[in-house]
Write a protein that binds this DNA or RNA. Structure first.
Length: 250
DNA sequence: AACCAGGACGTGA
DNA sequence: TCACGTCATGGT
C-alpha cells in the first residue's frame, strides 16, 4: 500500500469520526448532561439522557457546588445505572452541601446515614471511601484545576472517572471513553475490542476536531446511541444509524 | 433468574 | 502488561 493510499484512509477515518458525531447529534439532538439539578421541583427535567437537563447549554458548571456535584456523580456512576445515581444525588442533597468540606464532615460524623443515602448507587463501602478521598484532594488543591496524573493517583479515580471530571467539571478537552464507546467503534471497525483505554482515547483526541463542548456532547451521544443498540450481544446488530460508517474490509 | 449498569482495584501469571 | 475476581444495588 502506498503512502498516498494510506493517507487517504486516515483522512477518511478523521472525516468519519466527525461525521458520526454529526449523525448522532442529528439523530438524538443535544443531550444536556451534567450537572444534574433535577431536585429543582419547580423545573422538572427528564431522567436519563434524551433532552436532558440543559440541552445545548454548555455554560456549566456555574459555581463550585455544581462543579463538585459533577465530581460526586462521576464516582457514583461507576458501573452503575444513571437513574440510581440521580436518586443518590437527591438523597445527598438533603444531607449535605455539595462541597468537599460538607461531604467529609457528614460522612465522618454520620457514616451510616451517608451510606444509606448513596446505597442505591451500589458499592457503598468503596464509593464512600472514594468520595472521602476526592474530597480531601479538592480541599488540598483549593481552586486549581487538577492534572490528569494527580487525579489518577487518588484511590477510586481511574482513567474514565478522571476524564469525566476533567471534561465535565473542569471543561478540559479530554475525551471520555467508556464501555459503550469501545463497543460502538470496535463494531464499526475503527478500533480493536482489546485496545486499552489510552489507545482509544488517543484515537478520538487525534481524529475528532470538536471543541470542549463537542467532546462533552459526543460522549453523551455515544451513550444514548449505545443504550439502544449496544447493550445486548451481539452488539450493534440493529444499528442502522451508523451502518454507512462501517469500515470496509479489503 | 441471569444479566447489565455512564468502573476501579488487587492479585497472580 | 493483562486477565480475572471482587465490590453492592436495582432494574429488566
Amino acid at each position: 500500500m502506498t503512502t498516498k493510499d494510506n493517507s487517504l484512509i486516515l483522512a477518511n477515518v478523521q472525516d468519519n469520526v466527525n461525521l458520526i458525531y454529526e449523525k448522532l447529534l442529528e439523530t438524538y439532538s443535544y443531550q444536556g448532561w451534567w450537572p444534574f439539578l433535577s431536585w429543582d421541583s419547580t423545573n422538572p427535567r427528564k431522567s436519563g439522557a434524551i433532552n436532558g437537563y440543559h440541552p445545548g447549554d454548555y455554560d456549566f458548571p456555574k459555581n463550585n457546588f455544581q462543579k463538585f456535584e459533577i465530581v460526586i456523580g462521576s464516582i457514583l456512576t461507576q458501573n452503575t445505572a444513571w437513574t440510581s445515581v440521580e436518586e443518590a444525588l437527591k438523597n445527598l442533597n438533603k444531607l449535605i452541601e455539595f462541597t468537599p468540606e460538607s461531604l467529609l464532615d457528614y460522612s465522618n460524623n454520620h457514616e451510616e446515614e451517608f451510606k444509606d443515602a448513596i446505597r442505591c448507587a451500589g458499592f457503598v463501602n468503596q464509593k464512600t471511601n472514594y468520595l472521602k478521598n476526592i474530597s480531601n484532594f479538592y480541599i488540598d488543591i483549593e481552586d486549581k484545576i487538577p492534572s490528569r496524573d494527580e487525579l489518577l493517583k487518588i484511590k477510586g479515580i481511574g482513567n474514565e472517572t478522571a476524564d469525566s471530571i476533567l471534561l465535565f467539571a473542569h471543561k478540559q478537552k479530554e475525551f471520555k471513553v467508556d464501555a459503550y464507546t469501545k463497543r460502538i467503534f470496535s463494531y464499526l471497525g475503527y478500533i480493536n475490542e482489546k485496545d486499552n483505554y489510552m489507545t482509544i482515547k488517543q484515537f478520538f483526541q487525534n481524529n475528532f476536531s470538536g471543541d470542549v463542548s463537542m467532546f462533552q456532547e459526543y460522549h453523551a451521544l455515544i451513550v444514548e446511541h449505545a443504550k439502544r443498540y449496544y447493550t445486548k450481544k451481539p452488539y450493534g446488530l440493529n444499528d442502522k444509524t451508523l451502518n454507512d460508517f462501517k469500515v470496509k474490509k479489503l
